[in-house]
Design a protein around this nucleic acid. Sequence first.
DNA 1: GGAGCAGTAGTCAAATTTTACTAGCTCGCG
DNA 2: CGCGAGCTAGTAAAATTTGACTACTGCTCC
Lengths: 195, 195
Amino acid sequence: MSAIRLLVLGAIRQRGRAHGYQVRSDLEAWGAHEWSTAKPGSIYHALRQMAKQGLLRAHDIEPSPAGPPRVEYELTGEGDAEFLRLLRTALSRHDQKIDELTAAVGFLDSLPREEAIALLKERVTALDGWRAEVARHWTPDDADPGDWEPITEIMRLWTHFSASGAEWTRGLIQRLERGTHREDAEPAPSGSTNR
Amino acid sequence: MSAIRLLVLGAIRQRGRAHGYQVRSDLEAWGAHEWSTAKPGSIYHALRQMAKQGLLRAHDIEPSPAGPPRVEYELTGEGDAEFLRLLRTALSRHDQKIDELTAAVGFLDSLPREEAIALLKERVTALDGWRAEVARHWTPDDADPGDWEPITEIMRLWTHFSASGAEWTRGLIQRLERGTHREDAEPAPSGSTNR
DNA sequence: GGAGCAGTAGTCAAATTTTACTAGCTCGCG
DNA sequence: CGCGAGCTAGTAAAATTTGACTACTGCTCC
């Protein structure tokens, strides 16, 4: 579902309550319109859809004089659960696009440090496993000529990217373990949003 | 437009003429259903759309007894041009998703070696430029606390990926230059498709 | 003193993608 | 024989995404 739901849920979560344009401009402030496919249409659509599905609660705001129907949203319990589910998935699975991974890193502080580390270790394992599997399909001995030849280059591409992805992940794990990365995410102190 | 058009055009191009299911199963044979979002619906849709736009010529095949409308497609001149355009874009731009890049590598032999090398060099330049720009936004001196903090990790992620992408690209360029990679792609010998 | 430009807030149609099916054929096997 | 699994070939509806707009407000710059 691309990264949009994660981004939208995360944006609303950080504000507690927000209407469409606020979400949109927060995402823009994070540069999300550059590294993800977050356009107005997708954002408003996601808001309505998630409200319909019970992930968001919608509050109609009385429009000052005569304006377009203004709506503020906040997360329901399910919405919060869905946010965490998406975040965990994005961190631990290797088959995620760069936009989901970027968004997930941006929300890393929403998880307890221990859990973030565990998820990232899963990610490393997944990447290593995938690389092994790719390599198995490739063993030069079955270089049966007549075979689709560029396959070799594709394998190299993937091997390279998964190794590189694992390396980055290990780096982040280390920074988290050393506390170089800020330790945040108090379990759930009633009304937080300290910035 | 994701990688679908490139994949579909490339598949038809290699066969000269093909109907939907052939394209679909070629893509499956290349594993494209795993690394791209190529599903039946998207493929058939792309075929019809591209036929409507004049990139493909559609030939209705008379169905044996009573079957679904069977259609074979082949590239028009415009279709071939579009294929090459997409291929060049996918190779030279840094902001491409992994599925487009993978598809492009798969079709690398459709370009003269010199051109492929030139495009990949463009890619390296683009990646280096992008990394420099990311780094400029990051210089630790503007570490104004209160700033959205995970931004640092996002920068690191991108820096890592662009460096790694450039490294892979340079490797491929070298293999091409040394001719380790097969040299193919005769300019245009009337009826080719030698495999 | 108003023309127009940037910012706020959002809609809509068209294109694309996903998910879940349909329908005919053939081949083995009990 | 006959039937169920798997292959061939594709459709349809719903969800999502894209790209191009609309409409109002407050300023600024002649």
